[in-house]
Design a protein around this nucleic acid. Structure first.
Lengths: 241, 241
DNA sequence: CGGAATTTTGAAACCTTTCAAATTGGGTGG
DNA sequence: CCACCCAATTTGAAAGGTTTCAAAATTCCG
């Protein structure tokens, strides 16, 4: 099989995602491409943004994984959701916004400041669609924690990640890199590390998934989705999914 | 004690809240006042908005309680959060937005369409602050479900409601009307009705609260807040709480 | 190669759910 | 204004899913 141009120079996941949220004009894409190439690095474990502190500029995640998180006084923590390439954090119409949550890098992350609102109309649309999706993911997280058992929480979360990563080209054929420890999964799903471990083993035995060396494989995403009663997060008519 | 003008003609909760989010000019307040007086009624149990369907216009809740909710295929339901007087639902910059969640009236509700974005600058600020608060409440809900036990979930939720109702003048001295059944609380907190009932009884015995005839009394909100390790949702610097 | 981080196991304790069934409360019609 | 009915609250006992607490086994990384 001969490699096509696309194989040799795949789109940036961030650009792929923004273009999926709203069709972009050539010059808009070009502008983004330049910004993306100049993305700056944030090392793993560093904060991209901290709860209660002013947000200087919004940031477009170019590569790597980050997570929103809340800390409790006694040291417990709760991950609110993940931030993936193509996601934008800190976007607000308010003149001097304050971060509602801390965001930390789970891997090394690169990010750049995206064009301000009001410059590229299609990009503005992508921003608002992205924001609506974020809201949908937050609602999905609430539902997961409130109404699913451990087993289904895990499946449902992995399906959501698969969905999101497919949107930016980072998941192919049900498989994708998952740079998370079981402890992070536990702090996301409201479970203990021990229990996540046991449920993960069960899921493997059930043939629902494989997980080796930081890479997840969902054997049959749509079947699994039906099993846990999950419907994908969609927001704007016939645009997504 | 002599009644003041304020006592005789209390502000509308909705107007009180918007004014608390951002100081309003006299004419803005007057415009809102007129819209509020013409608010239309939505009967208890009716939907204000349904998931997946287009949002025709945003709505400002004038009176009554509503709730965002998600239904699972098997009939289970999860309340995502409550919608109170002064809250706005369906606000989006997108041309033809789709509702990300269903909103139903828990009591009779009155609501009106607020001025569009771009007409009253201070109101726009109130909108964006309100949106930031909504995000904060969603994050708080995730944290509650993920990391608190039944007892603390209840306390934490009641404290949040107290906080929100104080903002619009519907809570006085730790007491406020709570038009919710224990079943609704259960479906909000990811618990069963039975367990909510038992935990509520314990809370009463502990002297943390009283609850009779749909009215809640928190005996010592700040003490309770410390006990469950809760910090109020604040968003914009020295503006709120 | 060695130490730290992560994953894995076991058994017991614990919080929450389940399943009925009884009791109380509120609203409506006679 | 009382009787009646449905909704909501309350109780008990047993089953069950998750957590806890250690400790061992693996894997990762400098």
């Amino acid at each position: 099989m001969i490699a096509t141009a696309r194989d040799l120079r795949p789109d940036q996941p961030a650009l792929t995602r923004l273009a999926a949220l709203a069709p972009l004009e050539a010059d808009t894409a070009a502008t983004l491409q330049v910004l993306i190439e100049r993305a700056r690095l944030v090392a793993k474990r560093r904060e991209l943004m901290s709860e209660g502190r002013p947000i200087v500029e919004p940031q477009l995640i170019v590569s790597g994984w980050a997570a929103r998180l809340r800390l409790l006084i006694d040291g417990r923590r709760q991950f609110l959701g993940f931030v993936l390439p193509g996601d934008i954090i800190g976007l607000s119409r308010h003149p001097r916004p304050i971060a509602a949550s801390t965001v930390i890098a789970l891997t090394d992350v690169t990010m750049c400041t995206p064009p301000r609102i009001g410059i590229f109309p299609e990009l503005d649309e992508a921003y608002s669609v992205g924001q609506a999706l974020d809201e949908g993911y937050a609602f999905a997280q609430i539902t997961r924690l409130g109404r699913l058992d451990a087993q289904d929480r895990i499946s449902d979360l992995l399906l959501e990640l698969h969905e999101r990563l497919s949107l930016n080209g980072m998941a192919v054929g049900g498989a994708f890199d998952l740079p998370l420890t079981q402890e992070i999964l536990a702090d996301t799903l409201g479970l203990t590390t021990v229990h996540v471990n046991r449920m993960l083993q069960m899921a493997k035995q059930n043939g629902d998934l494989t997980w080796t060396a930081g890479r997840i494989g969902l054997n049959n995403p749509s079947l699994l989705a039906r099993k846990v009663g999950r419907s994908p997060v969609k927001v704007f008519g016939n645009r997504l999914v």
